[in-house]
Nucleic acid binder design. Structure first.
Lengths: 260, 260
DNA sequence: GAGTGGTCTAGACCACGTT
DNA sequence: ACGTGGTCTAGACCACTCA
């Protein structure tokens, strides 16, 4: 029985001796930092799932044998990092990584604001095969690895807006081809079916001219200006989960970038 | 004589009664928040300049008649916001807004990485005149306001890379036309000559085709893909200091966007 | 009313940088 | 040696949520 057996949503046990006591005496690492790292590990390892309740401050104080201020400092850092959130009178909860919101917020429909309720995708291709040398390099895979290659056409209100070619390490999402990618977002499927939450992404954006193939798929003239977006998406541990090359209609999208 | 007369770099005096005591009793606003706001005001008003030393924790405790933990919480929030930074054993210092680094980091030279030592600009035009209706709206100015219109061509290693048309409220930077904008960055001039540090900017980016004028200026073919970047730059108080429309060569630049 | 997180205090000791 | 910020404690009271 966990020492947290009486907790409402029964979080996983923490091993105080392994996580803390070994470090405290010898090293000069602050206690609040060690506690923050220990809690981070619980979250990133997946032992604490999204929306799960953390132990209360008082429990953590007892558990780590520290004062409340120290526990609060550790949790405050987690809040600042976005790993957890707190509600006064309620408790502390694991935050679900919300990279998707960040991605959706970065580029916007040009004229047509508002949430596109009737957005969707057509899957043109979803194949598992040996990765090319280039894709192995980009996905940080050894030679001879298998990948899923997923070509999709995205629609908003019946209008095609972008053409996407995704590459995913096959070992991370075996059986991807039998998932419903028409009605569900790829990133939702990755998170819920394959336990692959995305936590970070880099995009490289260039302006290019639509070639004949892209123009045909998007229903625009060849030579029209479009965004070419290369996106590297990462899951926990810095592991790359998807490499995507997308062509987005320049007359429909524009990027918004906030600089601070 | 300031009560801080003995301080090393002689910070401006704080008026405790005006800033704090009036609020404390009546409202339920936390003390650490009120102190943070009071310190923020000192910085944003320009009374505390960049790199200036803040009062020590002990002085702030006495001054606001609060405990050290409360002062530390206020300063920790300022650190997190990037307004100040601390050095153990030294002190707490006002940070200089570093929006420029953020801007320079957002788009990168395509092939040619590395710092462009020999970058420069040619000023094609710098005129003060009545603002058009559109520019008045964008700059949030009343009708009949005057603006500077500044057209520049930027070079890196002797190659023209972008064409920029900036609009600035004339009242914020009177005499801009006599400043050296060839060897100095516009934002450096704004900060140092006109006391106008930029703290935030929004960019809207689209892919377009270069028209004949732009192509001629940039030395590329008409119809080549380029970025059209509209940037709104803000100084303290949410006041817009510059609206810029820039055309950037697509074969030279690409945007890098980090999503979290 | 019981339990949660939010605020604040008073004091202690430590690590670091300057003098 | 002294002054700075960094860490940690033990305790108090408050604000909010929920049964």
């Amino acid at each position: 029985m966990s020492i947290y057996g009486s907790r409402r949503s029964d979080p996983q046990p923490l091993d105080r001796t392994a996580g803390l006591s070994a470090l405290t005496g010898t090293t000069g690492i602050p206690l609040h930092y060690q506690i923050k790292e220990a809690l981070t590990l619980q979250i990133q390892s997946g032992r604490w799932k999204a929306d799960q309740e953390l132990p209360t401050e008082e429990e953590l104080c007892r558990h780590y044998a520290v004062s409340r201020g120290t526990v609060r400092r550790a949790i405050a850092d987690l809040v600042q990092q976005g790993l957890v959130h707190r509600k006064q009178g309620r408790g502390t909860y694991v935050s679900s990584p919300k990279l998707e919101g960040s991605i959706l917020g970065s580029y916007k429909m040009y004229r047509d604001q508002g949430v596109p309720h009737d957005a969707g995708a057509r899957v043109l291709r979803c194949e598992r095969h040996l990765a090319s040398e280039e894709i192995c390099r980009v996905l940080d895979l050894g030679p001879g690895s298998e990948v899923y290659e997923l070509e999709r056409l995205r629609f908003v209100r019946g209008v095609s807006v972008s053409l996407q070619l995704s590459h995913l390490p096959a070992e991370l999402c075996p059986g991807l081809e039998s998932e419903d990618l028409v009605h569900r977002h790829l990133y939702d499927v990755l998170r819920e079916k394959f336990d692959l939450p995305l936590v970070r992404a880099e995009e490289y954006v260039e302006p290019v001219l639509a070639d004949a193939y892209v123009a045909g798929r998007l229903g625009i003239a060849a030579g029209a200006p479009v965004f070419l977006v290369e996106r590297h998406s990462y899951t926990f541990g810095g592991r790359i989960a998807e490499f995507r090359r997308a062509t987005m209609r320049g007359d429909v999208y524009r990027y918004r970038i906030d600089l601070r």
